[in-house]
Write a protein that binds this DNA or RNA. Sequence first.
DNA 1: CAACGCGATGTTAACGTTAACAAGCTGCCC
DNA 2: GGGCAGCTTGTTAACGTTAACATCGCGTTG
Lengths: 338, 338
Amino acid sequence: MDRPPGMVDVAREAGVSHITVSRVINGHPSVRPETRTRVEAAIEKLGYRRNSVARALKSRRSSTIGVVIVGSDLFELPRILLGVETAAKEAGYWVSLASRQGESTTGDLVETLRRLTDQSVEAIAVVADRPVAVEALTRLAIGVPVAVVMSGNVPSPDLSFVEVDQELGARLAVRHLLDLGHRDIAHLTGALRTFDARARVEGWQAELAAAGAEGALLEGDFSAESGFRLAQELCAADAALPTAVFAGNDQMAMGALAAFAERGVRVPQDVSVVGFDDMKGAGYLVPALTTVRQDFAHLGRSAIEVLVRMLGGEPAERHKIAPGLVVRHSTAAPRTAS
Amino acid sequence: MDRPPGMVDVAREAGVSHITVSRVINGHPSVRPETRTRVEAAIEKLGYRRNSVARALKSRRSSTIGVVIVGSDLFELPRILLGVETAAKEAGYWVSLASRQGESTTGDLVETLRRLTDQSVEAIAVVADRPVAVEALTRLAIGVPVAVVMSGNVPSPDLSFVEVDQELGARLAVRHLLDLGHRDIAHLTGALRTFDARARVEGWQAELAAAGAEGALLEGDFSAESGFRLAQELCAADAALPTAVFAGNDQMAMGALAAFAERGVRVPQDVSVVGFDDMKGAGYLVPALTTVRQDFAHLGRSAIEVLVRMLGGEPAERHKIAPGLVVRHSTAAPRTAS
DNA sequence: CAACGCGATGTTAACGTTAACAAGCTGCCC
DNA sequence: GGGCAGCTTGTTAACGTTAACATCGCGTTG
């Protein structure tokens, strides 16, 4: 015998029919304990393993959840993925991966989703950083439950959304600076084609407006390089330096810190800096970075949990996970209250 | 009709038999062009998509490659994964994910591999940072081609290995310091249970020995925190500070930089620091970090390419990808040549 | 002109599982 | 003691595809 044993082989070994083997494996109640034991012994002896492909074909249940990754600005992808994978495994599902890098057109995305449904995935989690991708999703009848991770605000009754509340995070950061006494808080934005960057801008604006404070907006792209460049611009400008800078993410904060160090601008004495993400090592920048922490593993886990509920017939859900402010040493009261 | 159309439906529409449809889809040569066109029209009209589960069942080819992730110290996982996914897609394969976090026993690993083969994956890539995992692999007859990513040095004729040459990377880093005139080069190691950390220690030792130089070894765990702590120890020690520090990775270098800044030790004037990885933003630390760059996407891509060749009947291969030194501003000649 | 070869198409039978239905056995109650 | 319920087991038929073999028609060649 050159191929792995099937149910028939186990059945022959145990002296029963293959369907009894099926029942034992699926935990069907009406099997005599004695028979069950015999079948289990045969399974053990032959080293039988259920062929999940055949099972998927017949039962139309592949026990697989597809994950689509759109965009590659996602620094924290591994943590999300680990959350996804862990939760999926716990729920008895496989994770099948499909990514779309670079400029993904709507057609590309459709094709990726198609490939995934061809594979008979039961549900799909889309980890997307761009509104474009999500807008495309809303126009698609995919036929399986879909959860969108990390980006929301698009009205769509059939899609679930799981995201960290970016606007709240931004507000937390800005409020912290306001509380310290800052009234001129610049924002170095992330890539504005992404949801996250936009939501952070909104949070920053809203909080600033509520406090009657102000600040310049400089557009970056989430890279440390852009943070560096924008901070340099800030220094070079004729106007006085703002007393605080809210960076689009920790990478940009890092760049800004480098630029300030180069110009001899002291942080936090001359200018306060807040980041976003709480990336690995953020506490060991100089100075240790005050930032907004996102729980990415939680995000991934929630996505799967939502999908599992949807597979159970529940309607689509929307979850906003609250981020938390982590205060370290890159923020302080402004030197001179104007 | 409530379920998606199958080949029979297409066949009926086109007025042929389902097997002709199969031939058209698989690009079989002996189909009359006129028939082909008719079938293609029917496919288009019905929106037919091949059921890859049924195909996998019959042909025993799932077109899926399994990826097992062992350990979670892998900061650069997403880049590897993206390389894997891209290369797999190009080669016509799916990627199915399975991770093992935390303390993975051999039994755990076996079970994970089993689950993957149950799914009929055609090949498996194991991204592992620990020797334990790899040793377990060598004792297993898995039945499909296996490539191990990121860790080598274990003799095993059936396993392919794809890794960045860690020892070479360490040598590059240390040689750079030696060339600058350093003779006392401490090494803050990564977690010694991992291959990478060990290989870097070996490279450091070998290069030091070859040059007749010396230096202390302090054991860390790849975290910025450990880099910080060990650098503090270095400062606190009665003996003089080494003139250079080779950190186990960029995170640890970051921690060390923070510790030195706190103590008023200037980098690179008082002490030079070299990292490993070239993590995102390494060029925007203060000072910009000299480090060793690993091409992770290449790593992932190579793994898939090797597996595809193995699926084509080729024997196992071993690849060492050469890392490159990136010189920035955290290294300089020692202040006083002794 | 018949036989052969070959390209194009069709028929049948798997792949290994689960669903639906059928049937045997036991024990219980009237 | 017969019939019926209920538990256990078996028979048969799919799921949608591909492999192997069969068939048909036509052009070519001895």
